[in-house]
Amino acid sequence: MPVAAPDIRSPGTSVQVIHASFNHHYISVSSSSSTLLQHIARHVEPMLSMDPTGERIASLHLSEAEGCVTAEDDQGSTIRWGDLYSAVRALHHMLIKRFIDARPELIWIHAGVVAFAGRALMFAARPGQGKSTLVAELLEWGCNYLSDEVAPIDPATNAVLPFPVSPWKRIPPLERVSADQLHKIPKVCVRLAPTVVSLHPVSLGQIFFPRHMPHATGTSFVRCSPSIAVLELSDNSFNSQDSRATELARLCNIASRFDTFHLEYAEARGAARDLIRAASLA
């Protein structure tokens, strides 16, 4: 059952506020423009909390005037964008970065993650390899949703924490497109039923490095060597460059404990079916 779009109203007050929560931390975003807040909310809808608990790590106030959007944070910094699209996109990434900065003890990977049979299946790749679309297709197969974009791993437990930004998927074109053209296909937001979103950390199961190969005849899984997996994960890591030596040590721990695969596929729907079959047999 689709979830109703976020509706932000606060009769009698000129400023409204939304809270995006992650694992006992939250960020508050306020604005007198409900339209602006709705655009932001749409990107983090499963993370919204009416009554957040834990520590507030940032507070942003947004304003809009003559088509320009301005954000002021609680540290006195101000950023301005000339159009709504650029502002929403930048603010989405800003929220993610604030959470990453607040939790440096976690390993943050640019990846989509779903849970299947009690284990997390992670898809780590640079933009344009179709991981968001893969995640959306896997949800159709009964997987639970952890993230479309960011996978925080707790190195103490090797569990993936849910970071449920709103998932988006590309509408399949009539013709297959090359990987370098994939990013030009527009994405649509996938509405999730609350029961699909995983509320708790899930133990890591398998890690995939997807490559969209439009001329592939099917789906192929090739086991990735641990040392290659470390470099793949490092390429997709959000953790600070300053601590890369530590990051590599932590990624080596991950790569040596869990199966990693190169995943090549032509279309996401078939790949999802093949992934579920393979996971069911494992």
């Binding site: 641990p226 040392s227 470099l231 030596a245 080596c252 040596s256």
Partner: peptide, 12 residues
């Protein structure tokens, strides 16, 4: 720096 991974290694 080097990190051992069973028979393999990552060097940095």
């Amino acid at each position: 720096l080097h990190y051992e991974l069973v028979d393999e290694m990552v060097i940095y």
